[in-house]
Design a protein around this nucleic acid. Sequence first.
DNA 1: ATACTTGCAAATGATTTGCCAGTGT
DNA 2: ACACTGGCAAATCATTTGCAAGTAT
Lengths: 130, 130
Amino acid sequence: VVRSHGLRLSTARRLVLEALYAADGPRTADQLAGDMDVASVYRNLETLEEIGLVRHVHLGHGPGLYVRASEGDREYLRCDSCGAVTAVEPAELEGVRALIRDRFGHEARFTHFPIAGRCADCVARASDPH
Amino acid sequence: VVRSHGLRLSTARRLVLEALYAADGPRTADQLAGDMDVASVYRNLETLEEIGLVRHVHLGHGPGLYVRASEGDREYLRCDSCGAVTAVEPAELEGVRALIRDRFGHEARFTHFPIAGRCADCVARASDPH
DNA sequence: ATACTTGCAAATGATTTGCCAGTGT
DNA sequence: ACACTGGCAAATCATTTGCAAGTAT
């Protein structure tokens, strides 16, 4: 899957990939680094992103988060108040996508930037009598 | 509007505000700086954001973009292919918001992160016979 | 006069790049 | 062997912070 692009399956590369596939969610380059140099991690993530094995998301103001590209391009909802992140299958947003497509001709993707806003809990909390 | 928070209407502060209100769209801190120090610009933008006169958006991988908060909280659609940005009135996304609210209880806001994806032109271009 | 503000320089955090030694194939 | 890679240090970009001098009120 990797050598098909003239690339080597080096130790560092394998480690990054393994860490990413072992993770249950988005990870920062730092978290994936372990003992190896972050520069190498960034370099590898970039390479792996180019050959389509990895992608990254921006969920807030912090560092970028990396996820494996396989297993479906999950999309994200993020609460600006509590920071909670919900990952959903693309199918669950088909209706939303269709509405945006009809209205603006725009094919929406919430894989790179999340649907920001307030989650149910925080909305409730805000409108409750304190 | 400004002194009501114990703040002074200093020259720099006024200049930032003027530049922002003269602009027809989002601007980076650098662009707003003119001859003054960027640090001061960032400081002022932060202050102005706190008192609700300014807000900022992240439309891509570059620096943050600042806009005046008044005149409605416009929301953004952004094409990942050509970078085109479309600002729309919140009302235009009411249907989308309602759908997301019903499905996830999440009150969506596209004022800070845009609706990313592909604009109509780029979608057409991509599916056209080359 | 006093507290808020500024410019300037240095610090921080995230990510990138140059360079040369190391290693897959 | 040769080209792809890794570590390490330094560079870059965006943004923040410390500090002493400047200024609105």
